[in-house]
Design a binder for these strands. Structure first.
Lengths: 122, 122
DNA sequence: ATGATATTCAACAATTTGGTTGAATGATCG
DNA sequence: CGATCATTCAACCAAATTGTTGAATATCAT
């Protein structure tokens, strides 16, 4: 089944629905960053940036490693894959490829709900 | 370039960040629906449902055909493709396929921002 | 210990969100 | 015409979001 009620999807999409947070993710795509580094490009207080980062963390999109007095952030793969899977599902309808639909519905029904490789590979 | 400041992405992701609206999209994936039909499964007022539908419409995720006194809604493909493209971009980082990264960056830089063709061969 | 640095916490204000209800609009039916 | 049906509008409310500032916490360097 496609997840409809998932609070995880709620928080993931909510996190993505803000340009500041998307830009932070973009920075993180280039490598790990401290909170201060993530905040630097924006004309907002450190506290505000901290909240954005918490939103990303809450959505599971990033994880944080506290290292002395600095917090290192890096991307986490899992939940984004869920969002991606969600969109992929609907995109098939939207691109009119209805031939694949029944097949898809059968697949989705007999597959674990959340994408399992929730890799905490550390 | 990956769109970072796009207000379109803002509204698309925001629209997707609510389970009620995702369920409405799910219903629409099965075919066109009137406002009343979209509202019916939910324990909310018609006015509240109308607002959700406006959010989806504002994000460009659905379009509406006024037909007499009823409004017919159906999915619209465009913006979802943008969101999907956005996620696809980042998913490559997240799945650790950094080998493809430079290639991708070059591609993304010389391509129209919103994915125009629907031809994602699978 | 002192002071500087990195980050969060707490309290507050403005705005947005998601819901309500009741009236308004507009199309259709008898 | 008058009633009914489908939907929106307007006013309102509670809660969440996003930002602020100033104090707190904890770590590092001297």
């Amino acid at each position: 089944m496609v997840e409809l009620e998932s609070p995880q999807l709620d928080s993931v999409f909510h996190a993505l629905g803000d340009a500041t947070r998307r830009r932070m993710l973009h920075a993180l795509a280039d490598g790990e960053r401290t909170v201060g580094q993530l905040a630097e490009p924006f004309a907002i207080s450190l506290a505000a940036a901290s909240k954005h980062i918490k939103a990303l963390e809450h959505a599971g999109l990033i994880r944080r490693e506290v290292r002395g007095r600095t917090h290192l952030c890096r991307l986490a793969p899992g939940p984004l894959a869920s969002a991606h899977a969600w969109l992929t599902f609907y995109e098939r309808f939207w691109t009119g490829r209805l031939d694949v639909l029944e097949q898809l519905l059968r697949e989705e029904d007999s597959r674990p709900p959340t994408i399992p490789p929730q890799g905490d590979e550390r």
